[in-house]
Protein backbone atom coordinates (compact mmCIF):
# COMPACT_ATOMS: atom_id res chain seq x y z
CA UNK A 1 0.00 0.00 0.00
CA UNK A 2 1.26 3.46 -0.79
CA UNK A 3 -0.14 6.86 0.03
CA UNK A 4 -0.91 8.80 -3.14
CA UNK A 5 -2.47 11.90 -1.58
CA UNK A 6 -2.14 13.22 1.94
CA UNK A 7 -4.77 15.24 3.77
CA UNK A 8 -2.99 18.39 2.72
CA UNK A 9 -2.82 17.24 -0.90
CA UNK A 10 -6.54 16.59 -0.91
CA UNK A 11 -7.29 19.97 0.54
CA UNK A 12 -5.15 21.72 -2.04
CA UNK A 13 -6.68 19.74 -4.89
CA UNK A 14 -10.22 20.58 -3.84
CA UNK A 15 -9.37 24.24 -3.50
CA UNK A 16 -7.87 24.24 -6.98
CA UNK A 17 -10.88 22.43 -8.43
CA UNK A 18 -13.16 25.02 -6.83
CA UNK A 19 -11.27 27.85 -8.46
CA UNK A 20 -11.28 26.08 -11.80
CA UNK A 21 -15.03 25.57 -11.63
CA UNK A 22 -15.55 29.26 -10.94
CA UNK A 23 -13.17 30.23 -13.67
CA UNK A 24 -14.71 28.02 -16.29
CA UNK A 25 -18.29 28.99 -15.41
CA UNK A 26 -17.50 32.66 -14.86
CA UNK A 27 -18.77 32.65 -11.32
CA UNK A 28 -21.20 30.58 -9.30
CA UNK A 29 -24.50 32.09 -10.33
CA UNK A 30 -25.74 29.30 -12.60
CA UNK A 31 -24.01 26.24 -11.18
CA UNK A 32 -25.45 23.27 -9.28
CA UNK A 33 -23.14 20.79 -7.58
CA UNK A 34 -24.30 17.15 -7.46
CA UNK A 35 -22.19 14.64 -5.55
CA UNK A 36 -22.44 10.94 -6.26
CA UNK A 37 -22.86 9.08 -2.95
CA UNK A 38 -21.21 8.11 -0.82
CA UNK A 39 -17.82 9.90 -1.01
CA UNK A 40 -18.64 12.07 -3.98
CA UNK A 41 -21.41 13.65 -1.89
CA UNK A 42 -18.94 14.62 0.83
CA UNK A 43 -16.48 16.00 -1.70
CA UNK A 44 -19.30 18.05 -3.24
CA UNK A 45 -20.11 19.47 0.18
CA UNK A 46 -16.48 20.51 0.67
CA UNK A 47 -16.24 22.12 -2.77
CA UNK A 48 -19.54 23.86 -2.08
CA UNK A 49 -18.12 25.29 1.14
CA UNK A 50 -14.94 26.46 -0.59
CA UNK A 51 -16.83 28.13 -3.43
CA UNK A 52 -19.21 29.66 -0.91
CA UNK A 53 -16.35 31.24 0.99
CA UNK A 54 -14.74 32.55 -2.18
CA UNK A 55 -17.94 33.95 -3.68
CA UNK A 56 -19.71 34.81 -0.46
CA UNK A 57 -22.87 33.12 -1.66
CA UNK A 58 -24.37 29.65 -1.14
CA UNK A 59 -24.09 27.27 -4.09
CA UNK A 60 -27.04 24.91 -4.72
CA UNK A 61 -25.64 21.49 -3.80
CA UNK A 62 -27.26 18.08 -3.82
CA UNK A 63 -26.68 14.36 -4.26
CA UNK A 64 -27.42 12.05 -7.15
CA UNK A 65 -27.56 8.32 -6.45
CA UNK A 66 -27.01 6.35 -9.62
CA UNK A 67 -27.53 2.83 -8.27
CA UNK A 68 -30.83 2.35 -10.06
CA UNK A 69 -29.20 3.36 -13.34
CA UNK A 70 -26.14 1.12 -13.20
CA UNK A 71 -25.55 -1.35 -16.01
CA UNK A 72 -23.56 -3.73 -13.81
CA UNK A 73 -26.25 -4.47 -11.21
CA UNK A 74 -26.40 -8.11 -12.18
CA UNK A 75 -22.69 -8.59 -11.58
CA UNK A 76 -22.80 -7.66 -7.89
CA UNK A 77 -24.96 -8.26 -4.84
CA UNK A 78 -27.84 -5.82 -4.42
CA UNK A 79 -26.66 -2.51 -3.02
CA UNK A 80 -28.47 -0.11 -0.77
CA UNK A 81 -29.98 2.87 -2.52
CA UNK A 82 -28.49 6.16 -1.27
CA UNK A 83 -30.41 9.42 -1.11
CA UNK A 84 -30.88 11.59 -4.17
CA UNK A 85 -31.38 15.24 -3.19
CA UNK A 86 -31.87 17.75 -5.97
CA UNK A 87 -31.65 21.39 -4.76
CA UNK A 88 -34.96 23.28 -4.85
CA UNK A 89 -33.73 25.42 -7.74
CA UNK A 90 -33.67 22.28 -9.91
CA UNK A 91 -31.26 21.55 -12.76
CA UNK A 92 -33.23 22.89 -15.71
CA UNK A 93 -30.95 25.21 -17.72
CA UNK A 94 -28.23 25.02 -15.07
CA UNK A 95 -24.55 24.19 -15.33
CA UNK A 96 -24.44 20.93 -13.39
CA UNK A 97 -21.13 19.80 -11.94
CA UNK A 98 -21.13 16.05 -11.19
CA UNK A 99 -18.65 15.21 -8.46
CA UNK A 100 -17.21 11.79 -7.67
CA UNK A 101 -14.21 10.55 -5.74
CA UNK A 102 -12.55 8.28 -8.31
CA UNK A 103 -12.97 8.28 -12.08
CA UNK A 104 -12.26 4.78 -13.41
CA UNK A 105 -14.27 2.92 -16.08
CA UNK A 106 -16.66 5.81 -16.63
CA UNK A 107 -19.70 3.62 -16.09
CA UNK A 108 -20.79 5.45 -12.97
CA UNK A 109 -20.76 8.71 -14.92
CA UNK A 110 -22.70 7.17 -17.79
CA UNK A 111 -25.32 6.06 -15.24
CA UNK A 112 -25.29 9.55 -13.71
CA UNK A 113 -25.95 11.09 -17.12
CA UNK A 114 -28.92 8.73 -17.54
CA UNK A 115 -30.19 9.66 -14.10
CA UNK A 116 -29.82 13.38 -14.85
CA UNK A 117 -31.70 12.94 -18.09
CA UNK A 118 -34.68 11.62 -16.15
CA UNK A 119 -34.68 14.66 -13.90
CA UNK A 120 -34.30 17.53 -16.34
CA UNK A 121 -32.24 19.24 -19.04
CA UNK A 122 -29.22 21.14 -17.72
CA UNK A 123 -27.49 23.67 -19.97
CA UNK A 124 -24.16 21.87 -19.47
CA UNK A 125 -22.96 18.89 -17.48
CA UNK A 126 -19.38 18.94 -16.23
CA UNK A 127 -17.44 16.38 -14.27
CA UNK A 128 -15.09 16.80 -11.32
CA UNK A 129 -13.17 13.90 -9.76
CA UNK A 130 -10.66 13.88 -6.95
CA UNK A 131 -8.68 11.10 -8.62
CA UNK A 132 -8.51 9.93 -12.24
CA UNK A 133 -6.94 6.49 -12.29
CA UNK A 134 -7.43 5.79 -16.01
CA UNK A 135 -8.71 2.58 -17.62
CA UNK A 136 -11.77 4.21 -19.18
CA UNK A 137 -14.26 1.85 -20.83
CA UNK A 138 -16.42 4.63 -22.24
CA UNK A 139 -15.66 7.92 -24.06
CA UNK A 140 -15.85 10.02 -20.91
CA UNK A 141 -13.37 12.55 -19.56
CA UNK A 142 -13.31 14.81 -16.54
CA UNK A 143 -13.35 18.62 -16.68
CA UNK A 144 -11.71 19.02 -13.28
CA UNK A 145 -9.24 16.53 -11.81
CA UNK A 146 -7.58 16.64 -8.42
CA UNK A 147 -4.83 14.21 -9.35
CA UNK A 148 -4.05 11.86 -12.20
CA UNK A 149 -2.97 8.52 -10.73
CA UNK A 150 -1.68 6.05 -13.31
CA UNK A 151 -2.52 2.61 -11.91
CA UNK A 152 -2.48 -1.01 -12.95
CA UNK A 153 -5.88 -2.59 -13.39
CA UNK A 154 -5.41 -4.99 -10.53
CA UNK A 155 -4.52 -2.20 -8.12
CA UNK A 156 -7.24 -0.55 -6.11
CA UNK A 157 -7.52 3.12 -5.21
CA UNK A 158 -9.01 3.93 -1.83
CA UNK A 159 -10.25 7.40 -0.94
CA UNK A 160 -10.59 8.02 2.78
CA UNK A 161 -12.51 11.07 3.99
CA UNK A 162 -12.67 12.34 7.54
CA UNK A 163 -16.48 12.53 7.43
CA UNK A 164 -16.67 8.73 7.06
CA UNK A 165 -13.25 7.30 7.65
CA UNK A 166 -11.89 9.62 10.32
CA UNK A 167 -9.04 10.93 8.19
CA UNK A 168 -8.26 12.24 4.70
CA UNK A 169 -6.03 10.10 2.54
CA UNK A 170 -5.85 8.44 -0.87
CA UNK A 171 -4.01 5.12 -1.09
CA UNK A 172 -3.15 2.60 -3.77
CA UNK A 173 -3.29 -1.08 -2.87
CA UNK A 174 -1.76 -3.93 -4.82
CA UNK A 175 -3.67 -6.85 -6.23
CA UNK A 176 -6.87 -6.10 -4.43
CA UNK A 177 -10.27 -7.23 -5.71
Amino acid sequence: MSVALSAQDINRALTRISHEILEKNQGATNIVLLGIPTRGAHIAARISAIIGSIEGAEVPTGTLDITLFRDDLRMRPPRAIMPTKIPASGIEGKDVILIDDVLFSGRTIRAALDALGEIGRPRTVQLAALVDRGHRELPIKADFIGKNLPTAKNQSVKVLLSEIDGRDEVTIEEGAE
Binding site: L68, F69, L73, P83, T84, D114, E118, I119, G120
Partner: peptide, 16 residues
Protein backbone atom coordinates in the same frame (compact mmCIF):
# COMPACT_ATOMS: atom_id res chain seq x y z
CA UNK B 1 -38.37 5.44 0.95
CA UNK B 2 -35.70 6.33 -1.58
CA UNK B 3 -37.72 4.86 -4.43
CA UNK B 4 -40.77 6.81 -3.29
CA UNK B 5 -38.69 9.99 -3.37
CA UNK B 6 -37.42 9.18 -6.84
CA UNK B 7 -40.90 8.44 -8.15
CA UNK B 8 -42.33 11.50 -6.44
CA UNK B 9 -40.03 13.67 -8.50
CA UNK B 10 -39.75 13.89 -12.23
CA UNK B 11 -38.52 10.32 -12.67
CA UNK B 12 -41.41 8.02 -13.53
CA UNK B 13 -39.38 5.21 -14.96
CA UNK B 14 -36.09 3.71 -13.84
CA UNK B 15 -33.99 1.45 -16.06
CA UNK B 16 -32.99 -0.78 -13.17
Amino acid sequence: SELARVSDGAVKKLPT
